[in-house]
Design a binder for these strands. Structure first.
Ligand SMILES: [Mn+2]
Ligand SMILES: [Mn+2]
Ligand SMILES: [Zn+2]
Ligand SMILES: [Zn+2]
Lengths: 139, 139
DNA sequence: CTATTAAATCGAAATCATTTCTATTTAGAA
DNA sequence: TTCTAAATAGAAATGATTTCGATTTAATAG
């Protein structure tokens, strides 16, 4: 992954704004998935500058659409995003207790897609549950 | 699948109400996924009796939680449900154009779960796109 | 450096799918 | 038939997300 965010944004034809850089930096250092509101809080804490919530929503969605960050599918149906440095094709296991995310390689995506009679546009694949650490603590 | 819905409801410890039976019947005969509002419309058309929207929402969610119907993950983030008679473990390919659903067997769920360091509670897996029929028509 | 402009941001307000609430009804059991 | 927990109805609330119009700004060219 390219951690030169200004460069990254340029390559995506997006203007390099302080708001975007702040959002990207917060996502990069977060070790759990975050809601848009949480991203806003952290951006304000760190950068000490205000960023409007619509701006957060717009950018998180844009970055997600471009594959820079990934969207977490949560049972509560609200939006959460996670920055993953791993650029290889893979999926995630999400701990609902501590909000951490594990990478999952070895998926059956390709063979799954091969049995589809049509044009695949999205492939959703994600596991949810309780990570070992959280299992142990609450046992 | 047990198409004796009264029996099915009893086995799930749910009361056999006309509303539930109407919802189940509509879901069974639908050949596409449906939104709660669409279920309501069709229930009213067919049964000629009113069913409140909260009742529809509550029951669709309950039946989905019990595995009787499946929830469709749609990019617009609204709720959709689909009744699938196939009781074997499998997943779905959803056509966003005509709303039809294809069964997908041969998933890598098990091996995927095996690499997870924790307790899996949900496994989300779904493909979205355009079915061959729709591809052909719009070509 | 300045001018230009499309893109981006802002805050306020709107949206609307979904949920909650409470009174009433009803299925199922005794 | 009586009883009661479960289910339903309709009205109202909810609140995460989106939209809007005005303003600012990044990027480009001269
Ligand atoms: Mn990852
Ligand atoms: Mn199916
Ligand atoms: Zn955990
Ligand atoms: Zn189709």
């Amino acid at each position: 992954m390219n951690f030169d965010f200004p460069q990254l944004l340029k390559s995506l034809q997006l203007k390099v704004t302080p708001q975007r850089l702040a959002i990207l930096e917060i996502m990069r250092i977060a070790d759990t998935y975050l809601s848009p509101e949480e991203v806003q809080e952290q951006v304000q804490q760190r950068a000490n500058g205000k960023v409007g919530l619509p701006t957060i929503y717009r950018n998180l969605e844009e970055l997600s659409a471009q594959g820079v960050i990934s969207k977490i599918l949560h049972p509560n149906r609200q939006l959460y995003y996670y920055f993953c440095a791993n650029r290889d094709h893979h999926h995630h296991f999400v701990c609902l207790a501590c909000r951490t995310v594990q990478d999952l390689h070895d998926c059956g995506c390709a063979e799954m897609a091969s049995q589809i009679d049509g044009q695949v546009e999205f492939q959703i694949m994600q596991a949810l549950g309780t990570c070992r650490r959280c299992c142990t603590q609450n046992a």
